[in-house]
Write a protein that binds this DNA or RNA. Sequence first.
DNA 1: ATTGCCTTTTTATAATACAAATGAATCGGG
DNA 2: CCCGATTCATTTGTATTATAAAAAGGCAAT
Lengths: 250, 250
Amino acid sequence: MMRKLKKAAKARGERLHHSLAQDIGARILKGEFAPGALLPNEAEWCDAYGVSRTAVREAIKMLAAKGLIVSRPKIGSRVQPRDSWNLLDRDVLAWYWATSDQHRFLANVQEMREILEPEAAALAALNHTAPQLAEIDAAYRGMVEAPTIADWNVSDVKFHLAILGAAGNELLVPLGFLIESALSNMFAFTATHNTDMRKALPLHEAILNAIRRRNPQAARRASRILLADTNSVIGRSRKPAARRAAGRKR
Amino acid sequence: MMRKLKKAAKARGERLHHSLAQDIGARILKGEFAPGALLPNEAEWCDAYGVSRTAVREAIKMLAAKGLIVSRPKIGSRVQPRDSWNLLDRDVLAWYWATSDQHRFLANVQEMREILEPEAAALAALNHTAPQLAEIDAAYRGMVEAPTIADWNVSDVKFHLAILGAAGNELLVPLGFLIESALSNMFAFTATHNTDMRKALPLHEAILNAIRRRNPQAARRASRILLADTNSVIGRSRKPAARRAAGRKR
DNA sequence: ATTGCCTTTTTATAATACAAATGAATCGGG
DNA sequence: CCCGATTCATTTGTATTATAAAAAGGCAAT
């Protein structure tokens, strides 16, 4: 490793401390340093990567800010228990994604969408303001008129984020961004998602119209159908948990 | 401000850079530095707080790791647009909570619980493993035998977190921690929540039994009733959005 | 007017010194 | 021999200084 980091940082236009944080963070999530374990001390990091203590310390502070480690004098930097890792952080999620069972992770993300988006659509039907509705409408028209698949995807994401924004719950918005960023890590998704835009488009229209008519039940229903449809494309059974629960007691 | 920071840090057993990050972060969320605005440069921070550049830089790196700011040479540190703030971070959420309309924020948190927990309970009914069920059961018994209200609350939180853990979706767990930490910021909640433990206890038992019997519908239903009950105690109408939507078109 | 080169400001990195915290070893008293 | 206080050593925390790199803004030449 070592010297390569400096060149990699320069090549990607990243600062040293940022690259260091990325590298160390990824190594922690990869399991190279287990929770409770003691990391190498600052001098060793300097030596291993050939950088100054300043850069190392700033990287460590970034990881501490994400809940991965804590530093104490004389002790060193210790990896925190997984519970205090901020898994809802973009970086941490990306590191996690890179080392997890990707199929299962994708299923989890999709499951989160199934939980959140229908309710968000229903709330949006109740709570949306005029500009928020216009934003959803604009995204929908962007999908209709999309010249390429890539454009369609961009508008698709905007559509769903706009609905989360219109739901009137500030916590839903960052969750939406998180899910979006998680999905954007999975090219496989975007590649297969829109093989049947022709099916998806009327469903999006149904959601839009239900929100416009302030009909939460209809919005929720249409959103559920759309997500179920997405599932079939992804190749995930509607109840992936059913398998695990097969050996149930009663 | 200035000199006081050092004493405050020492009194709370915090490091300087940590206290600095807390203070600057809170000021950003308070709106003292708007998104897009340029922060004072490092020298000015050193001067204002009477600390070294090292401490300032480490604090800045922590805030950058939480998505609040970005630093670039010759430019300085600029406050990021709200969209890239990591609102799902414990600290950021706490800063936000301190400056927001607290009643509305509490309503949002409760709304998130209503979205997440019934579905989590249903998933837990399908997916739970034996040790996970035992954990839920232990938390329930902790509630039954709780000698004081404080003990009851501890077990209550454990109960709900255990259900999220048993749902088999890794993203639900950190969300649960986040909601818990948000709620723990609001003493008002814990103070009023358990005025009628007698009502809440059988509902918890119903959820536990539904999960044990692997009956997702029953688990979801019981969870919904429990949350609706909590709402009435909190003094929030079941559909707070209904007011805003009163002037609807159809 | 546009292009490319300076200048200058600010962060980025490095190097060094000392302070503070704390686990471990050591010493002293019982 | 055991126990407690003390000292010691190690590691992070903070401060200071120096230098490098980035980039906006001005300057000049074409």
